[in-house]
């Protein structure tokens, strides 16, 4: 028993040190940790083997390559991603986050990564449109913490639309498929590539882009978020993004995922 106890104690101490290293290292960036909500294909998702993959992930890796640092991706649900950044669980947010005035009060944003409008997905033939009148009495799913959640809660919920928030975008789709939701609101490219173009999205279609936004809930473009007390990192990331464009790496990665210019003009949904 004595031995067991002693070895157990040593194991505990060893594990305590191993799992929570009070890492003392010289002041130099040796890794860049990105916070990611990996439920948002084709931008960020997990492969069956559990590896991070997607457009954002490839861009992140390219940025790390430019900065000659190690890249680490940390899983984090979207609704807690800004506090987690503030709590220094990672150094930057790389998760299709749109710049909004509200968020810019909390954190700093890099230059543009790409741009996409917000769109509604509905069941084929339902004829629902992204307006409060059309959706009255219906149930709309959104991911918690997104601009789409703010949008639906600002403009639609007071008008009698039932808005349900989920911890991850994949759960929104799961309930859209199962029929609990009548529609879901998210970024249009994500909706197109991550859902409609997959086998699961066969019965669904775009209900249209959201255009009405007098209170500017939807913000502007998508960027990397960094803590305000870390301007050095922001400078480095901005420089790396510029380099990616200059060297043509951005175009190369873009071509791997999209057939249109995801940086400039957002794709029109008129084709649907």
């Amino acid at each position: 028993m004595k031995k067991v106890f002693r070895s157990a104690f040593t194991a505990l101490c060893a594990l305590g040190v191993a799992s929570a290293p009070l890492a003392a290292h010289a002041k130099q960036m040796h890794e860049l940790r990105f916070g990611v909500d990996a439920t948002y294909p084709p931008f960020e998702s997990l492969s069956p083997s559990g590896a991070f993959q997607g457009f954002d992930i490839d861009l992140g890796k390219a940025i790390c390559a430019e900065l000659a640092t190690k890249c680490v991706f940390v899983s984090q649900s979207f609704d807690g991603i800004i506090p987690a950044l503030e709590a220094r669980k990672f150094d930057a947010i790389l998760s299709s986050m749109t710049v909004t005035p509200e968020r810019a009060k909390q954190i700093a944003f890099s230059t543009e990564m790409y741009n996409e409008p917000t769109a509604l997905i509905v069941r084929k033939g339902s004829g629902l449109k992204p307006t409060a009148e059309s959706l009255k009495g219906k149930t709309v799913g959104v991911e918690a913490g997104t601009i789409q959640e703010s949008y639906a809660k600002t403009y639609w919920e007071p008008m009698g639309v039932k808005v349900v928030s989920y911890p991850g975008q994949d759960q929104v789709y799961a309930d859209l498929l199962s029929g609990r939701l009548d529609a879901s609101l998210q970024d249009s490219v994500e909706a197109d590539y991550g859902f409609l173009k997959t086998s699961r999205g066969a019965d669904f279609q775009f209900g249209g882009d959201v255009t009405y936004d007098p209170k500017d809930v939807l913000g502007s473009y998508i960027a990397i978020g960094v803590r305000k007390d870390d301007p050095e990192l922001l400078k480095k990331i901005d420089w790396a993004i510029a380099e990616l464009h200059k060297k043509g790496i951005y175009k190369k990665i873009e071509a791997k995922y999209f057939t249109f210019d995801v940086y400039g003009a957002p794709p029109a949904n008129s084709m649907n």
Binding site: S19, A20, A24, A26, K27, V74, R88, K89
Partner: peptide, 16 residues
């Protein structure tokens, strides 16, 4: 200022 300390509580550590 010689060293910079950091302690990361990942889900596993926080869970434990």
């Amino acid at each position: 200022s010689t060293y910079s300390f950091g302690l990361q509580l990942d889900p596993f550590t926080s869970g434990t």
